[in-house]
Amino acid sequence: MSRNTKINLVLLFVVAALAVLPLALGLGDHKEEPFTGADAEAETAITELKPDYEPWFSPLYEPPSGEIESALFALQAALGAGVLAYYFGLRRGRRQGEQQALEREADSALAGAAGKSTAEQD
């Protein structure tokens, strides 16, 4: 494994650790509902600060269940990951193609030069 790949893997590992540690250490245990979204907590805080506040507009479309919502979130992540993977795959392929073309060129130039020199010797 190259040094580059190792560093990349370490980066991913640290990100994973940062996500897992709060769960593993039980940092949500002091809450009634651990690990809810901060956005929802803000809504609760708003209703605490201003109990009579009524949202004056509701979403045009609301996912009918938590499952559908998580499916749509997964779709969002998958779309993004797909485009990113396409980009890096395309770049890698192009680079390899260019390299092969260069090698082939160098080979044929070498073969051409060799052919010429043998021809001169004759």
């Binding site: 940062l18 996500a19 709060p22 769960l23 940092l27 949500g28 245990d29 002091h30 809450k31 651990p34 690990f35 809810t36 979204g37 901060a38 956005d39 907590e41 979130f73 997964a74 969002q76 992540a77 779309l79 993004g80 990951a81 797909g82 485009v83 990113l84 980009y87």
Partner: peptide, 19 residues
């Protein structure tokens, strides 16, 4: 696409909530 992926990832944090 990077923004798409990252803003869909709700991760647990030290405060016991997710963002």
């Amino acid at each position: 696409a990077f923004t798409f992926v990252l803003s869909a990832l709700k991760l647990p944090s030290v405060t016991g909530s997710c963002s």
